[in-house]
Simulated scan of single mutants.
Amino acid sequence: MYQFIAAAVLVLGCGTSVSAEPLKLVVLGDSLSAGYQLPADEAFPAQLQAALQKRGHDVEVVNAGVSGDTSADGLARLDWSVGPDAKAVIVELGANDALRGLPPEKTRENLSEIVSRLTARDVKVLVAGMLAPRNLGDDYASSFDPIFADVSRIHGALLYPFFLQGVAMKPELNLADGMHPTGEGVSIIVENMLPAVEDLIERAGAS
């Protein structure tokens, strides 16, 4: 009997000493999510992690944003930017494709390949959409804008239609260049995206 009790205490003791690792969420993006010219704690991944933890989620948000990256750049570094322990990814790419006037069909191919490869690894994905600058003309915009919804639908990923929703074209929420959000602007993006991100981590946790 004493041996049984001792064994039970040992097992229970071991069980309580082991804590689950936080769910790892990677933000694969460009300067918009990387935190261009912002302190590290004001960048999107840091503010998102703080907001999620405040709501009781045990999540580590990794900043895998690289300023200047196109969708092709993101695809090229996908395997080392998103490690094997990642359970969820926010894909925030495409803005630089549009700024450079790159062919929308290439952006579509790159983003589709990124989401396809992540999905094949059973990594849950949230695609953050972007809109083309209107000075590129209606034809370009009509080819570029639907890419993100199409890719997310084809691969069964979640979609947040426009990453800069509530911040774009508002000078007080952007840096002097008029394109990159301030820390306050980032906080609005996080607040707006939070329901979609909670859906993402729910999917990742369920898997």
Rank of each mutant, 00 (worst) to 15 (best):
M1P: 06
Q3E: 14
I5K: 12
I5G: 12
A7Q: 06
A8Y: 06
T16S: 04
A20Q: 03
K24Y: 05
S31N: 12
S33R: 01
A34F: 13
Q37F: 09
L38W: 14
A43G: 02
A43D: 03
F44R: 00
P45K: 07
K54I: 01
V59A: 03
N63Y: 11
V66G: 12
L75E: 04
R77Q: 13
A86M: 04
A86T: 05
K87D: 09
A88H: 07
E92G: 04
A95H: 15
D97E: 06
E105W: 04
T107W: 10
T107K: 13
E109W: 12
I114M: 14
I114Y: 09
V115K: 07
K124P: 15
V125G: 08
V125L: 06
V125T: 03
L126E: 03
N135M: 00
N135F: 01
L136C: 10
L136G: 07
F144K: 10
D150Q: 14
S152N: 08
H155C: 08
Y160W: 14
F162D: 02
F163T: 06
M169A: 04
N174H: 04
A176P: 10
G178D: 07
M179P: 01
E184Y: 06
S187A: 15
D199S: 14
I201R: 04
I201T: 00
A206W: 01
S207G: 09
S207A: 10
